[in-house]
């Protein structure tokens, strides 16, 4: 795998995200405290910057219209249907590295990505 070093560890506050731009990629990188997760920084709803959203467990709420995206699968959990790509992340040499070329749409589970517009989805960690 080709791992591209991005932010130094510690440069993203815990439970916050930052935008990482590399060539044509625009990725939202999150520090969850125990791990880093990366997804496409484009909300499936109206392309909102997920990197600026509020993190709750392993999900983020888009700052524009509050869609909730699971950061492990990329699936929308509430708001509407949709999915964003997820990217492998690894810590190497005190740097958070992302394998941009390995970004993928993971297989959605039965209960994920199926939330309706009206009912807010349950938190994946609760």
């Amino acid at each position: 795998m080709r791992w591209v070093p991005t932010a130094e560890i510690g440069s993203i506050p815990v439970k916050e995200g930052r935008r990482v731009v590399y060539r044509d990629w625009n990725v939202a990188l999150f520090n969850l405290g125990s791990e880093y997760l990366a997804v496409d920084n484009v909300c499936p709803h109206k392309a909102g910057p997920l990197s600026d959203g509020i993190v709750a467990g392993k999900a983020v709420f888009c700052p524009l219209h509050n869609w909730k995206i699971n950061l492990e699968t990329g699936c929308a959990l509430s708001g509407g249907k949709g999915q964003v790509k997820t990217y492998p992340v690894k810590i190497l040499d005190q740097k958070v590295c992302i394998a941009f070329e390995e970004g993928s749409l993971k297989e959605a589970g039965e209960d994920q990505g199926m939330a309706s517009l009206s009912e807010p989805a349950r938190d994946p960690n609760s």
């Binding site: 795998m1 791992w3 591209v4 070093p5 991005t6 932010a7 506050p13 590399y22």
Partner: peptide, 22 residues
Amino acid sequence: VHPYQFQDFVLPKESEALIVTS
């Protein structure tokens, strides 16, 4: 409040990738 509060990470196009096998 945080040194990187307003910071995003825009990498130079020629950023080198580390190639790791696993």
